[in-house]
Amino acid sequence: MDRETIAAAYRAACHEELRALKPGNVHDFAAGHRMAVSDFETSAVLSAGPLTEPGARVGARVLAAVEATRAAVGQNTNLGILLLCAPLAAAAEAGGDLRGTLTRVLAGLDRADAVDAFAAIRLAAPGGLGTAERHDVVREPQATLLAAMAEAADRDRIACAYVTGFEDLFSTGLPALERARARGLDPAWRPTAVHLAFLAGFPDSHVARRHGPARAEALRLEAARIAGEIDLAARPVEPLLAFDTRLKAEGINPGTSADFTVATLFCARLLAHAA
């Protein structure tokens, strides 16, 4: 797949996610967490080039995209998005069956990828990162990026994606998007369906880092309850905005669920182009 097709798919996925009402995150219906929609719009445009640099390794793509983002908006708006989308972009560039190629891309991650990814994480400085006994990002990595992700997989959903071949995208995100399409949901509400599927399906890693596993699990249960009570076909702005307001008042940002939503939308677009 050519570079501009991949970059356009990435930008479109980022913009589409921002249009959707995703409780706790930044979106067109409400800003939050000292960030505005425009910060994410700018980040999407400026990170697309580095993310799709032909022939670049995954770690290099992530680092260059984080550097471009940080220079423009001065804060972390897209680290998780980039960590998920860089392997997808590399796989799309290589061609062939996207899922099969993605598996090979992940298996080929080496120490150079770890060096660049760790530098990107340090630069982005995501909240609640904490420390680790092994493969701590504050130190120069001695292992491959895949090994480092495997070490963190039990506490970080994005790291888990690296060692499961992005199973969450294929078993949760893409099926939720397909169900939303099959139901005839308005395109603006399909990302909401995907976001709620992730939010209700797994404790959000970002919430767990910032507020603890118990709060992340409570959020998952609340999201599952709300998802079962609303009908997205009816465009339920009021109840979802009320949920959104409660979360933001508590300082809770389910950012990992939003990152997976973007990655799902990006993956879906790549699959459509490859078909």
Rank of each mutant, 00 (worst) to 15 (best):
A120N: 04
P87Y: 06
L145E: 03
A200S: 15
P175M: 11
G100W: 08
A9Q: 13
A107E: 14
L241H: 07
R104T: 15
A176Q: 09
G173N: 07
T103K: 12
L82F: 07
A200Q: 06
A30I: 10
S38G: 15
T77D: 02
A9C: 15
D156N: 04
D116A: 13
Q75N: 09
V262C: 03
E222M: 12
R3C: 08
F266D: 00
T164E: 05
R215D: 12
A153W: 03
R61E: 08
R111L: 08
A120V: 07
A258V: 04
N253C: 03
L265C: 04
A249S: 06
T264A: 05
A72C: 09
L174S: 13
A182H: 12
L18N: 04
A94D: 05
L265Y: 04
P50G: 06
L88N: 00
P213E: 09
A65V: 05
A268I: 09
P23A: 14
D110T: 06
N25W: 02
A94N: 04
L88T: 10
A12N: 10
I121Y: 05
E16D: 15
F118K: 10
G184E: 12
T103A: 14
A112T: 13
E229V: 01
T172H: 11
V207M: 03
L232E: 09
V105E: 06
R220C: 00
V262F: 01
D204E: 03
L241E: 06
M149W: 02
A272F: 11
I226Y: 07
L241T: 15
P203D: 03
A200L: 03
